[in-house]
Amino acid sequence: MNVTSTGATSFVHEQFDDIEQQRNAAQLGMWIFLATEVLFFGGLFLGYTVYRSLYPDTFAAASHHTEVVLGGTNTAVLLFSSALMALAVRAAEFKNRKQLVWLLLGTAFLGIVFMAIKGVEYHKDFVEYLVPGSHFEWHEANRSHAEIFFWLYFAMTGLHAIHVTVGIFVLLTLAVLAWLGKFTAGHHTPVEVAGLYWHFVDIVWIFLFPLMYLAGHR
């Protein structure tokens, strides 16, 4: 926020002509970041594709050991949180401070619910000796191939969980700033851009759910 020569406060940083150009630059920056994120996750999805095509039967068998009810519930939680996030951006655009704060908190809360369910799930996997390594236990065929599946399962859901965690902190920070009235006084680009990130994390899970929990059929 800069103070212009007339003494009025402006949200436009000095390198931009106007608020619209600044907003467009922020959105473009986030979309380019998301493109790099697509490739970041893409490497793991590629590894999954290669090994699933090599060991389709073992991947299907290993997938049966994942907690489909918890994973499916988590998908619904994230989809619902994305809807709240979209409504938050709308509330910011209409300068509805109270609604914006509650929607941001609601989105963050669902993110925390997601992480809690994921924690329960990881604990179940842990006590069933499904974590790759020296304690990995597998009583069906092709132990090492099943271990590859679980390596990918933990790497991909783990990387996703890190993204959700970052998103939760971003949303909580935004909720505090929104409560202070930062996004209802003339610009709300940070809410929009954080929304893009949150929806992207949702999209990653949309692909992880069938690949991890429903490989083959149950």
Partner: peptide, 15 residues
């Protein structure tokens, strides 16, 4: 923005 969004998908397809 359409271009930036599509670019990620195109590079993923190349990969």
């Amino acid at each position: 923005l359409h271009l930036a969004a599509t670019a990620g998908i195109i590079w993923l397809l190349i990969l």
